[in-house]
């Protein structure tokens, strides 16, 4: 068959397909609805014609036209619509808690690294209040005291959207910084991650212990209760991601250090996604809920405890059925 015969035989088909491609989105879908297999068939036929034209060395103009038709067909037919956020929802609903359970050793280590210094320091400061001067300068302490002094209540509620938004930005930056430190420190064979987790645990513990011992309970604990679970667990999980990377460098197993790093970072990045989500939520709660000053402290602490309980349940149970399903035959 020569080129002219070939073109003559299939020209109508191509024009048909081309006009479908030219149709705007909605009409295209409508046309596809008549017989959903029709256009994919046409597309495959065009791809076949393209291969033939290539093989028989037909003119470049014909080949280019078919190529362009095939490309546009590929674009039109392979664009997947729908099930848009399925992956994200799957991750939040079961993937992330399942991942946390799978990496529970690392997560528990990170939690210990963060919380042991934190809680230990609170205990120490309640017993020996002066110990705080080993950790923070008097100016810093004054600053924190001013922030959470019960007298602040008289300054009135500060829940204007603008200032809250500004604080949201600040909190995001602060949380991101802590998460980033805990994670990136992992690249120094995990030493940096360990350092930053202990360091942040100590700093938070120092402030918390000091203010508690001063009796600023309603302002301080009322403020931090709501977002504490989100922020601290987020930091611990990003620290765990850092540890994962550090461990991959210390004990690469049968891989090179680089390859081991690549493998570990796949998991670490997924942990980070979760941590980033939690951290963002923490900043949001901190800016828009924790800063409300005219709510009773009991309510705020209760909400905080409920969040902790929910997280415990989430990480222990969410997505269990999926775990089981994936193991079944």
């Amino acid at each position: 068959m020569n080129q002219a015969q070939f073109e003559a035989r299939h020209a109508a088909e191509w024009r048909d397909f081309e006009s479908w491609l030219d149709a705007p989105g909605a009409r295209k879908e409508a046309a596809a609805g008549v017989n959903p297999r029709h256009w994919p068939h046409r597309y495959r036929a065009v791809a076949h014609h393209l291969a033939l034209a290539h093989d028989r060395a037909y003119g470049p103009e014909l080949v280019d036209r078919l190529q362009s038709l095939a490309l546009r067909g590929h674009q039109a037919l392979y664009g997947s619509r729908g099930n848009a956020m399925a992956a994200v929802i799957e991750f939040i609903g079961s993937g992330f808690p399942a991942l946390v359970r799978r990496e529970s050793t690392l997560i528990l280590t990170a939690i210990a690294l963060l919380f042991v210094p934190l809680l230990g320091l609170i205990a120490i400061l309640l017993r020996w209040p002066d110990f705080v001067h080993y950790l923070a300068s008097p100016e810093q302490l004054l600053q924190y005291e001013a922030m959470y002094a019960p007298a602040n209540r008289a300054l009135g509620p500060q829940h204007k959207a603008e200032s809250q938004l500004a604080m949201f930005g600040y909190y995001i930056w602060n949380n991101v910084r802590i998460d980033f430190q805990c994670f990136a420190g992992g690249l120094l064979f995990g030493v940096g991650a360990i350092f930053f987790m202990i360091y942040n645990g100590l700093m938070i513990g120092a402030v918390a212990g000091h203010l508690t011992q001063l009796g600023y309970i309603s302002t301080f604990w009322g403020f931090v209760a709501g977002h504490s679970s989100w922020e601290l667990l987020g930091a611990a999980i990003s620290g765990a991601a850092g540890l994962k990377i550090g461990w991959a460098l210390i004990a690469p197993g049968p891989h090179t250090r680089m390859a081991s790093l690549k493998i570990a970072s796949r998991t670490a990045v997924r942990l980070l996604y979760g941590a980033a989500g939690m951290t963002t939520c923490a900043a949001f709660i901190e800016a828009f809920w924790s800063s409300l000053r005219n709510l009773p402290v009991e309510l705020k602490v209760t909400v905080g405890i409920v969040f902790w309980a929910l997280f415990l349940a989430y990480f222990l149970f969410a997505g269990r059925d999926r775990d089981a399903a994936s193991h079944a035959d």
Partner: peptide
């Protein structure tokens, strides 16, 4: 080479 999906774009 396929068009970007909603999830990927987000």
């Amino acid at each position: 080479g396929a068009p970007v999906t909603f999830g990927a774009s987000v």
